[in-house]
Design a protein around this nucleic acid. Structure first.
Lengths: 157, 157
DNA sequence: TCAATTCGTCAGGCAGCTTGACGATATTTG
DNA sequence: CAAATATCGTCAAGCTGCCTGACGAATTGA
């Protein structure tokens, strides 16, 4: 599928830039999940973990989560419900808007987040060794350019 | 999260190699889906489309699909069922093994595949223009290296 | 030859989203 | 200021995409 390939006419070839991007993303994801599992964070393999990266140190309004994650408010509701049950986050009233709730980490959640960050750094270090520092930085920058060049991306729902 | 960043200590930072890989893969996927939609292949947005890339011009054994896709045979069964209903593929008996079925494209499926390939080439061309030919080839090669360096990846179920 | 394995199929279940409807609060408008 | 409208979170129900379990038919191995 690669336009510079000889086999450009090959039927439904399973190698092209999209496939490689997807596979590389999978490699990262699998390693991260394994890492979290090894640290005893089994829940991180499940859907509710998708909320976690969006919660900063000061917490986040639930409606803001909805906007950034691109899910319905009901889906976010359920994900946050699960995290609350698991003791990772808690909902507190928004002092500025009595309709709203702020979702923020519990102390257990903060600990999990720190461990997650360590694993991310470890994976990045491994990949940096695999490619060499120079090539890793190239890859990192090229991905950014590809993402930024996309018009449809930057606007959350 | 990028280990060379100044803000390496930032809490749960939402930018690291895994995030960029995922985002870039998303950019590709969204463009491809939009492209197929514009060509009238709405069904390609659904799960059953995940089977399609694995079906070559000669068809493929259903059990082989199971191995390569990493899903259960029941899941593959359902996906193929949907494609059969949609008239994209058909199941014919495997002449070499009377237990088996070969999944192959109908003429409608072949047409869809050709159109899909055109869109893939178009997206790749766009990305090549975005990055410049040289950098695109670098990215393409770097992704390959990252994927191949992964041990857990190459073995299908 | 007959036990174990593989292949496709039918049935049922669960997770992760969806749409719909609703009370409580905020915001906009006449 | 009052009333209409929009937003926020919640409850309920449904759909899709995968899963596990069980089975008959065909193949393979001892």
């Amino acid at each position: 599928m690669h336009v510079t390939d000889d086999k450009n006419t090959e039927f439904g070839a399973l190698d092209h830039i999209g496939w490689r991007l997807w596979q590389a993303a999978q490699v990262w994801k699998i390693r991260f999940t394994e890492g979290m599992l090894a640290e005893g964070y089994g829940w991180y393999a499940e859907a509710r973990s998708s909320v976690v990266p969006y919660i900063g140190p000061d917490g986040i309004r639930q409606s803001e989560l909805v906007r950034r994650m691109g899910l319905t408010k009901q889906a976010v509701q359920q994900l946050v419900d699960d995290l609350v049950k698991a003791g990772i986050v808690e909902r507190i009233p928004d002092p500025d808007d009595r309709r709203g709730k702020i979702v923020r980490f519990t102390s257990a959640g903060i600990a999990a987040q720190r461990d997650a960050d360590k694993i991310k750094v470890r994976i990045e270090t491994e990949m940096r060794e695999t490619l060499g520092a120079e090539d890793f930085d190239r890859l990192y920058a090229l991905l950014r350019r590809l993402i930024d060049a996309d018009e449809s991306n930057p606007g959350p729902r």
